[in-house]
Design a protein around this nucleic acid. Structure first.
Lengths: 159, 159
DNA sequence: TTAAGTGCAAATATTTTGCTGTCAC
DNA sequence: GTGACAGCAAAATATTTGCACTTAA
């Protein structure tokens, strides 16, 4: 059954053991826990929006943690390589940069409005089926499924 | 039933009326047909790989058509706005640029190998179902569905 | 004829890299 | 103590924009 996801915070709470889980995962891989990584992980765990690099830099500054662009990119690449975050472009509805979110246990669809830019998340069992089909038909060992849908939201349609 | 797509040329032949169709579509929208647009359209119609901007520039030069980067980007944006091409990033397996392909009548999944970079295309009726579900549950008027899957291909897995 | 389209140059945006100093372990 | 990591500056890559010239319709 298809179900629209709750807001992003609830979703995190439901699929993660709470704050600190990511830190433990990193430690388990022999990676060092710096102030910069700590705050980036916390942002990912608590974010109510999709994070992009400028946003991350601003948040860190606001929290009093000094962090450089290069560190953000290096850390995100690290987390990607370890399969902890997914990179999205949200259909480039604005700009050509990327957005980042924790890799949740359940895949979900991102649905973006081409007029107002609003992004919805949707959970559906079709993605699991899709993953299984791809794996079976191609023989690939699938590690991630990314689905982004563009359209016009109801509010914009009536304008 | 899931079916792996034939090669890209066959797919084009199956879903388009042959060369010139795109030109007619553009003319129908009151857009001008220049040498630059003509060759870009032809590349899109006949491409055996996914096209990126450097590739397009090189091909045009090779065909003796003078074309600037700016023109390529402007034309691709035009075609995107008119719903004639889709923009992909193929999971950024190499570089951070984008790839372009004609919007086919049937959606398909792009499956990329994170080790060797090979991209497969796969057709599946699950995408139509997904489109319908998204539309029904969100109320969005869906214009495009983009699915990119990352994994390790069988050849790389045995290495 | 003339508005749309192009090239060119420069600006802007995004991401990566080399190097040196710092800090987690 | 030492190797991993951070900041800084610069380079590399990707995309957009302003303007003067060209051309399709």
């Amino acid at each position: 059954m298809l179900q629209q996801s709750r807001n992003k915070e609830d979703a995190k709470a439901a699929t993660h053991g709470g704050p600190g889980v990511l830190e433990k995962k990193l430690a388990g891989k022999g990676l060092r826990l710096t102030a910069q990584r700590r705050i980036l992980l916390r942002m990912l765990e608590t974010a109510s929006t999709h994070l992009d690099v400028p946003h991350i830099l601003k948040e860190a500054r606001r929290a009093g943690v000094r962090m450089d662009r290069a560190t953000v990119y290096r850390t995100l690449n690290l987390l990607k390589r370890h399969g902890l975050v997914d990179e999205l472009d949200l259909l480039h509805l604005e700009g050509t940069g990327h957005y980042y979110e924790l890799r949740e246990s359940g895949d979900h669809v991102h649905v973006g409005c081409t007029r107002c830019g609003r992004i919805l998340e949707l959970e559906t069992s079709l993605l699991e089926k899709l993953r299984a089909q791809v794996q079976r038909k191609t023989g690939y060992d699938v590690s991630s499924v990314r689905t982004e849908v563009a359209g016009v939201c109801p509010a914009c349609r009536t304008k």
